[in-house]
Nucleic acid binder design. Structure first.
Lengths: 172, 172
DNA sequence: TATTTTGTTCAATCTTGACTGAACAACATG
DNA sequence: CATGTTGTTCAGTCAAGATTGAACAAAATA
């Protein structure tokens, strides 16, 4: 069916998302959950998640809460069911970007605050510290625009329109 | 001199940069080095770095190379000196952003590749996977524009012009 | 009320990566 | 040549965080 290295396309996708999120400083299991929800949408019951991903209930609890806080998934109640169910949120990615933005702003502020303390810094030092603050300011501004781009395509249009190539922006 | 919690403004700044970089997935010592170079510019000798930051020579070697590869600092030779010296690079932040961009593109490609394998995915699944790829595309595009913004202010104008809040532009 | 189901919490374990310090090679100096 | 200096490498140690699994509280069920 597939190469001997691989375990099936769905598992590959889920594990791939695990690695991508891990590379971004999140728990691997959170990434696997996200992969599963992107792949199949849901809703999935709490126990289903633990069984499908072969992961402890403790991890399901911790990481569903994490993704819920991030706005990637949402907890839903199903009539006649006692278990919690989860499904992919309508707008799963907005808060991820917003979180990046906040981190840049925090860094920028922290630097600015430090700069104020450094009363005996020479003009070159002030310039270098200013440039560093500017750097984080640019990152914050970039994520802010990313947030706007995301709102444009939203969940409505599923196409993969945004690319590095500006020419593709006009399409549709 | 300062509050009993604190250790002097310069040390605070250096340690602060250590934490900021660590929060971005880099070694803490790399952040401290970066803080030191932003603060004082350099050039610093290899041994000076180890002594100032109270860190092993092994760590200095590893992390100066890391920052050198990232284009944050550069190795310089000083006449009559046997030790390596390092100073802050002219354009220290460009490659950091470029590196973020590449990571987003990699993720986007990885997802697109996976999507091709998933031949039996329904239309909703295709839409969700497309939206995920789009998300990483947006991140890539945002970092690309950040790179352009950075080139504008470059090292030439040291001011901190880019902010989320337009009102702060007039200040200073 | 006793039992079962469910999700959370937390101590213990495991994993990953950072950091150290000693060994080393290259090179300069005497 | 012998010695000292310099930067790199790598095995060992350490720390931070992720993950597990058992204990637990809350609530449904019988």
């Amino acid at each position: 069916m597939s190469s001997p290295m691989t375990q099936g396309a769905e598992t590959d996708f889920i594990e791939g998302m695990g690695l991508i999120l891990q590379g971004d400083g999140m728990p691997r299991i959170a990434g696997r959950l996200m992969g599963l929800f992107v792949l199949r949408g849901g809703p999935f019951s709490f126990n289903e998640l633990a069984e499908t991903l072969e992961v402890s209930r403790g991890s399901v609890s911790t990481n569903t809460r994490l993704l819920e806080d991030l706005g990637v998934i949402e907890r839903v109640a199903l009539k006649g069911e006692r278990q919690d169910f989860f499904r992919l949120a309508a707008d799963p990615y907005a808060q991820i970007i917003e979180r990046k933005r906040v981190r840049s702003i925090r860094a920028q502020e922290s630097i600015r605050r430090s700069a104020d303390e450094l009363t005996d810094a020479g003009p070159e030092a002030v310039a270098r510290i200013g440039a560093l603050g500017n750097f984080f300011g640019i990152l914050a501004a970039a994520t802010e625009r990313a947030l706007e781009d995301l709102e444009k395509t939203d969940g409505t249009t599923p196409s993969e329109r945004i690319t590095s190539d500006p020419s593709s922006l006009a399409a549709e």
